[in-house]
Design a protein around this nucleic acid. Structure first.
Length: 574
RNA sequence: CGGGGCGUAGCGUAGUGGCUAGCGCGCCUGCUUUGGGAGCAGGAGAUCGGGAGUUCGAAUCUCCCCGCCCCGACCA
């Protein structure tokens, strides 16, 4: 039983000045965490209990799925990360250090290498597979910008699992098992979440989904179809556009359009000239980019920006992507800034990619590759042909769902889990092979699966807290019942203790506010701030042999006779 | 890394060249109080983020450094 009279806890009456998001503010105020440095927090007793509760839910679900827990050090030697090139690739986000002999070490940002080597060290036959192992470990990433308290820290707790299979079919099964285990975890944790299609990005591999907890303070943006439930990371959003019919479109016409280097100025000019109803959406934006030092033209409708992050993810394998700078234009004198069109791309030898919205058969106003000139009736497939199509334009609310055509909405969320079909990248780099049934050596195929454990604490706080404090689901609250004893007589305190003991005997965890010197108001405020699901007040009603039972979430209150308290509380918690 | 803001006691803050750095919460002592962050009285607690400078005099002005928060870039 947690007794407030001795609990190592000091709640704060004021919001901390350096916290903005609810989870950060309340976890500090309620005495769960304290900041040590940017993105680095210590956990006080209430915080530790809550974190452990989340860990245990995850651990139980992992074990139930047949995954086995192992544990690695956070402090790791450089070699393994050298083999996969991540010592370099991870860049400044990797915490590196040296031992007394000058040997390089790192604080593990994620453990693919170590798990791969662990399996390599023990197993060498296909008969040993499939295998899934996991750990709950402190990870270190020197984030460029830690933020929102515990949501993005530089030190954080993560549950990471890895699956090992002989072939793709096995990987798919392991992946689905993890997916199911994750669903069970997050359901038990009482979280709202969406499973969202993602692009695998830097991790390599093919299939990948994210578990996103919707929340206004989240840093991830995703699209959601309100009708069919389709959900995707904006990077993974697919644009479905049918081909246009250009058979009746007049021949390409070059126009003198003085001083129209921007889309706005061009639209104004066209409308003034032709009295038409031209909009930015009728123009073709030809954006010049540098992809790892090579020029690249990307076509998007004039009313949309290029989403560089989305484009880069969909290009795959491009490390540095940026827009053309003056120096780049100087290198390519045939490109007339503000008046570029795809019509002459073949001559310049620059690769032209088009967003799917620039569909075959569609007609556009585009640059004429000549200062102060544009062209209209520029038809894709007739007047130019893109080398390839790639998702490049920004995604907007109201765009069409690729599954059912309904207008999608855009929402923010915290990423709480991510599951990947990694494939053979790490197994290959570290030579993790097993013999197949023919005695032939096969590279193992892997999956990697993460849950941000400490982040989940924050995400749950974000989703459940209200104006007056935290408000935990029963499974992870520091205690299921918070008993407040009021008054100055011994009776309420003795009764409160008795009820607490009976609850604990019944397997229900209890926090007891047995402080003699604190006023009732202080105790109520603290109980609400701390956020245990049931609050029992032992005080005034005792005159009639009753105690008050409050449900933190709903605010419902009822008075029950002391003898029935335990059974009634037990029912409320089911 | 770019932009913005901030740094005064455990927490929240006032103080823009001049007396002993002020207030609230919290903490300690005593008395009163005890169902919605109690009252009175007394008390402890601050190298004003650090350093250098300007000045008779610096929390306050100047320069350098450090740290923190927010937006963006980045981010398994």
């Amino acid at each position: 039983m947690l007794k407030m009279s001795t609990l190592f806890l000091r709640t704060l009456r004021d919001d901390p000045a350096d916290a903005e998001v609810a989870s950060h503010r309340l976890l500090v105020r309620a005495g769960y965490i304290r900041r040590i440095a940017a993105g680095i927090y210590s956990w006080l007793p209430l915080g530790v209990i809550t974190l452990r509760n989340v860990e245990n839910v995850i651990r139980q679900e992992m074990d139930k799925a047949g995954f086995q827990e192992v544990h690695f050090p956070a402090l790791l030697p450089r070699e393994a990360y050298e083999a996969t090139n991540r010592w370099e690739e991870y860049g400044p986000s990797l915490f590196r250090l040296q031992d007394r002999k000058g040997a390089d070490y790192l604080l593990g940002p994620t453990h693919e290498e170590m798990f791969t080597l662990m399996v390599k060290g023990e197993y060498s036959s296909y008969k040993d597979l499939p295998l899934s192992i996991y750990q709950i470990q402190t990870k270190y990433r020197d984030e460029a910008r830690p933020r929102s308290g515990i949501i993005r820290g530089r030190e954080f707790v993560m549950k990471d699992s890895y699956s090992f299979d002989i072939d793709e079919a096995g990987l798919e099964i392991s992946y689905q098992k993890h997916r199911h285990a994750y669903v069970s975890c997050f359901n038990r944790l009482g979280m709202k979440y969406n499973i969202v299609k993602a692009v695998s990005g830097a991790m390599g591999g093919s299939k990948s989904e994210e578990f996103l907890a919707p929340c206004s303070t989240g840093e991830d943006t995703y699209v959601l179809c309100p009708k069919c439930g389709f959900a995707a990371n904006v990077e993974a959003m697919v644009t479905k556009v049918s081909a246009g019919d250009a058979s009746a479109t007049p021949a390409l016409e070059v126009l003198n359009t003085p001083n129209t280097p921007t889309i706005d100025s061009l639209v104004d000019f066209m409308n003034a000239q032709f009295g038409g109803e031209y909009t930015a959406a009728d123009t073709l934006k030809n954006i010049m980019l540098m992809a790892d030092g090579k020029p690249l033209a990307v076509l998007v409708p004039g009313d949309r920006e290029v989403d560089l992050k989305r484009l880069q993810e969909n290009l795959g394998g491009v490390h540095e992507l940026r827009v053309f700078e003056e120096a780049d234009f100087a290198q390519h004198p045939t490109l007339v800034k503000g008046y570029i069109g795809p019509q002459d791309a073949a001559k310049s030898g620059i690769k032209v990619l088009a967003d799917p919205r620039v569909a075959p058969g569609t007609s556009w106003i585009s640059g004429a590759n000549k200062k102060d000139h544009h062209a209209r009736y520029v038809v894709n497939g007739r007047d130019f042909t893109p080398d390839a199509y790639v998702e490049a334009a920004e995604v907007r609310a109201g765009d069409s769902c690729p599954e059912c055509n309904t207008e999608i909405i855009i929402d923010r969320a915290i990423e709480i889990g991510h599951i990947f079909q990694l494939g053979r990248k790490y197994a290959e780099a570290l030579s993790l092979t097993v013999l197949d049934h023919n005695g032939k050596s096969q590279v193992v195929t892997m999956g990697s699966y993460g849950i941000g454990v400490s982040r989940a604490v924050a995400a749950i706080a974000e989703q459940t807290s209200d104006e007056i404090g935290l408000n935990w689901p029963a499974e992870i609250a520091p205690a299921k019942v918070h008993i407040v004893a009021t008054g100055k007589e011994d009776l309420p305190f003795d009764t409160a203790l008795e009820i607490g003991q009976k609850l604990e005997t019944a397997g229900i965890s209890v926090m007891l506010d047995d402080r003699r010197d604190a006023s009732a108001g202080v105790k109520f405020k603290d109980a609400e701030l701390i956020g245990n699901p049931i609050i029992v007040v032992v005080g005034k009603a005792l005159a009639e042999g009753k105690v008050e039972v409050r449900v933190r979430k709903s605010g419902d209150k009822s008075e029950v006779v002391v003898a029935d308290a335990v059974s009634i509380i037990a029912k409320l918690l089911v």
